[in-house]
């Protein structure tokens, strides 16, 4: 059993486990987007990056694809990881500004603004649907088309495919379209107003939830943050939060 050290905690991991498995086994939170239990790890969203190795040879790898190795030292919360992860979230948010999941993630990482021109893509190209269709539904009806800026997910040649049984599995696993943010776009595009029903903000603001009213009406998210809540985060430096941009 390879022994790994994650954030100072030793673990005898199962051979064949990934760093993400090991971290979660220890109860360490590592955010993921393209990862989903039951689907092969893919490493596309880069959200689950962790720092491995020591000194000048340390580097960032995606924990969902990196296998545990004997003696590997892993840091899931180093400054480097957090800084890079914030930029990853910012890039995601730039592409799918309306996604509730991403807005919540940004709020959780105490991001105050998104500095890119917002786009409202329907797809973050995480590839969950492609793997779902192929691996769980044995449909292989959809796949990636093109590359670079023209990369899309669709059926071959953009034509209706006989291989598609319309099972809806792809929609079921989509992290972006299933939870579209219902609230208005904030000027800074990081709103965290949690307009939809998922009570993520209750994780952040102890005694308030968004069940209280219509989208953004409750106004709780924009008030002061509970001091005790700071311990919930992995962000390195305490920052003054003006989530909601008002």
């Amino acid at each position: 059993m390879p022994r790994v050290t994650i954030d100072g905690l030793d673990l005898d991991a199962e051979r064949g486990d990934t760093l993400l498995d090991a971290a979660r086994h220890l109860g360490i939170e590592v955010p993921t987007l393209c990862h989903m239990e039951g689907l092969t790890p893919w490493g596309g969203c880069r959200l689950c990056i962790v720092e491995v190795g020591a000194g000048t040879r340390s580097r960032l790898v995606t924990s969902c694809t990196y296998p545990v190795e004997e003696g590997l030292k892993v840091r899931t919360n180093s400054k480097w990881v957090i800084k890079t992860r914030r930029m990853v979230i910012e890039l995601m948010l730039g592409a799918c500004s309306g996604s509730k999941e991403l807005q919540d993630l940004a709020a959780k990482y105490r991001m105050e603004e998104m500095r890119f021109k917002p786009r409202h893509d329907d797809c973050i190209l995480c590839g969950r649907c492609v793997r779902m269709c192929d691996e769980q539904m044995t449909g292989s009806a959809i796949g990636f088309l093109g590359r670079g800026q023209s990369l899309t997910i669709n059926t071959p040649f953009d034509k209706p495919s006989a291989a598609c049984r319309r099972c809806g599995g792809c929609m079921y696993v989509c992290p972006i379209c299933t939870l579209r943010c219902q609230g208005p776009d904030a000027p800074t595009e990081v709103c965290g107003r949690c307009g939809s029903m998922a009570p993520t903000c209750s994780d952040v603001f102890e005694d308030y939830t968004c069940y209280m009213g219509a989208a953004g009406d409750c106004g709780t998210c924009v008030r002061e943050e509970k001091k005790t809540a700071a311990s919930l985060f992995c962000a390195p430096e305490p920052a003054k939060v003006t989530v909601g941009g008002k």
Partner: peptide, 21 residues
């Protein structure tokens, strides 16, 4: 690079696009 990135990694696909913008 933004056209030749395979598009798998978000950082490469979106990052090169934003840098170009």
């Amino acid at each position: 690079l933004r056209n030749e990135s395979c598009g798998k990694c978000l950082t490469c696909r979106e990052g090169t696009q934003r840098l170009w913008e």
